[in-house]
Design a protein around this nucleic acid. Structure first.
Length: 573
DNA sequence: GCCGTTTTCGGCCCGACTGTTTTCAGTCG
């Protein structure tokens, strides 16, 4: 049992308690415990060993006992009891926007709806509209929501989850002497969502590697164990494969297994046009059958007359042509980033103080950071009233006086309300250094309505940035149905910045949209949407991955500019 | 269910939005 397993059990319990009309504070406590455990830096098993579980904020005596039960038995008594009592698939149904505990109770009692399939069928056959407070529009919304739910990709794994596991496993395997390990597959290409984790290894001690791999902590099941190929299921149901390869074939196998498939097919076509054959065993000259020496990836690309192609670009989206012409982009890196434009402080729903955020930003080598707390309508995210916003500006100014090489910018993540107006009036917005506009309500509105809201915001003179432009949550919900062409045209025409939100479950804009925006000349920002300092470096890395997959260079990203240039660009005094 | 305390209970507890209504029930962040 690891941190995320425990967190998952508590969040599921919270949902079941909601269905049972439990006290909202109890539910909140479960959600808080789940959140804290999920974001814990330490291994929860270690905390248990050290008897420090109740040092976690939000974990008291009761949760401590539950955690110990979970770590020992995989569950806890109350969870088992509630699971027995509730016949419906709460987790699945609550993932549908608009489906809350009250409605689900009524749907179960009156129509016997237990899962998404039941719900879909009931909406389709117009049985839902007969229930109190329901109608034809509600049925329509439910069907739309289910369509988006079906597209959400929940059965796959978030990149950041896979990346952490891959890093852990890699460092374990590398303790074996004379062993070289490479992550390959979609994790190496930094795909936003992956199906599994793949490794290739070259080693003098293959047996040790296989023993180490199959016996590591976290292995749930061993699916296949052969001399050169092992396949396991890791904690959380994540498939992990390992192949042992001959050192001579390390480079070609890396290319072969990193993919993408489309990239490889294109490479193979080019090889055969040169009378070569490319496989995971390397490049062969078809004329004389001699193997060309190609131990590394770079050797292979070079012998085919191509520049080295970074894994993030290997999607056959033009990277091979660019590599041939020496025109690959100089992709943005973490070193290029000079600031972060979207951070929440403890003035709204963030956990860190403005000073802590400034300290972290400076330690990351930034020259500026924008504090963008929620606006007043986001009441339960402690959105700031106009008065609070002005008081927060005073605090920012005080802290800024301590620095001459660093600046905190006063900003807001201002809600775009349902009527397309912004949550603060112009008098307030013009006082801000930076205004990020965002949609947090009405996700199931139709395309026309939602697009109108976004367009109106982008046309507002005070708005600088559009946050998470599609509103998606990977594995949870698809984005709202915004007309992306129109969104981009409007951003371009009004010279607005589009955000690449690096929060691992958002990654929004995605790589493809980021590439389109770059090609249209729309300025982009890589932001973290961090809610505590811990998220600042992690989310920036995942945001940069998206940017790199979208071919972005430093010049395409506004927060690679130094403080002076950025302030000039934004018109900040 | 946690937390803090004038320390073993009382506070935690918003407000916009939607779809159904014509004053409300429920969801969402």
């Amino acid at each position: 049992m690891e941190n995320h397993d425990v967190a998952r059990i508590f969040s599921k319990t919270a949902k079941m308690l909601e269905f049972q009309n439990a006290s909202s504070y109890k539910i909140k406590a479960y959600n808080r415990a789940s959140y804290r455990i999920k974001n814990l830096k330490e291994d929860i098993n270690k905390l248990h060993e050290d008897d420090k579980l109740d040092s976690i904020p939000g974990i008291g005596k009761s949760f401590k006992n539950k955690i110990v039960d979970i770590l020992n038995t995989g569950t806890f008594p109350e969870y088992e009891k509630i699971s027995q009592e509730i016949p419906v698939n709460i987790e699945e149904l609550m993932a549908i926007p608009g489906m809350g505990p009250r409605i689900l109770q009524s749907l179960y009692k009156r129509l016997g709806i237990k899962n998404v399939d039941d719900l879909k069928e009931a909406a389709r056959t117009h049985r839902i509209r007969r229930l109190p407070n329901m109608g034809a529009r509600k049925e329509e919304r439910i069907l739309n929501a289910i369509k988006r739910y079906e597209k959400r990709g929940a059965d796959r794994i978030l990149f950041e989850t896979a990346r952490q596991i891959a890093d852990d496993i890699k460092s374990i395997l590398e303790t074996i002497p004379y062993t070289k390990v490479s992550v390959v597959g979609s994790v190496r290409r930094q795909n936003e969502i992956v199906n599994n984790i793949n490794f290739i290894v070259t080693t003098d001690y293959p047996e040790d590697v296989i023993n180490c791999f199959t016996q590591m902590k976290g292995v749930q099941t061993i699916l296949n164990e052969a001399d050169k190929w092992v396949s396991i299921i890791y904690n959380g149901g994540i498939p992990v494969d390992l192949q042992i390869v001959n050192d001579d074939y390390f480079g070609p196998t890396q290319i072969h297994l990193t993919g993408s498939k489309e990239h490889n097919i294109h490479l193979q076509q080019i090889a055969s046009s040169m009378n070569l054959h490319l496989s995971k065993f390397g490049l062969i000259n078809l004329e004389d059958g001699n193997k060309l020496i190609s131990k590394t990836e770079n050797d292979i690309y070079q012998k085919m007359g191509l520049d080295y192609i970074p894994p993030e670009l290997r999607e056959d989206r033009g990277e091979i042509e660019s590599a041939f012409n020496g025109a690959l982009p100089e992709l943005v890196t973490a070193d290029d980033i000079k600031g972060d434009l979207h951070i929440h402080s403890n003035w709204s729903d963030g956990k860190s103080t403005i000073q802590q955020i400034a300290d972290e930003a400076r330690s990351l080598g930034y020259e500026y950071v924008a504090i963008c707390d929620h606006s007043k309508s986001r009441a339960n995210a402690s959105g700031l009233s106009e008065g609070q916003l002005l008081r927060r500006m005073n605090e920012i100014e005080k802290i800024n006086n301590r620095y001459d090489d660093f600046r905190i910018l006063a900003g807001t993540e201002c809600d775009i309300k349902a009527n397309a107006s912004l949550d603060y009036n112009s008098n307030i917005l013009e006082k801000m250094d930076i205004v990020i506009a965002a949609i947090h309500t009405g996700f199931d509105e139709d395309k026309k309505t939602i697009t109108k809201r976004v367009v109106r915001a982008l046309e507002n003179e005070h708005v600088n940035v559009l946050a998470h432009p599609t509103g998606r949550r990977l594995g949870e919900r698809a984005g709202y149905d915004v007309d992306m062409d129109k969104l981009m045209e409007t951003a371009k025409r009004n010279n607005k910045i589009l955000e690449i939100n690096g929060s691992p479950s958002r990654l929004d804009l995605n790589d493809i949209n980021a590439k389109t925006a770059k090609e249209m000349g729309i300025p982009l920002a890589i932001n973290t949407d961090a809610h505590w300092t811990h998220d600042m470096s992690r989310n920036m890395k995942t945001g940069i991955n998206v940017a790199r997959r979208g071919w972005l260079e430093p010049k395409d990203v506004v927060n690679t500019q130094n403080l002076d240039d950025f302030c000039n660009f934004m018109g900040i005094d």
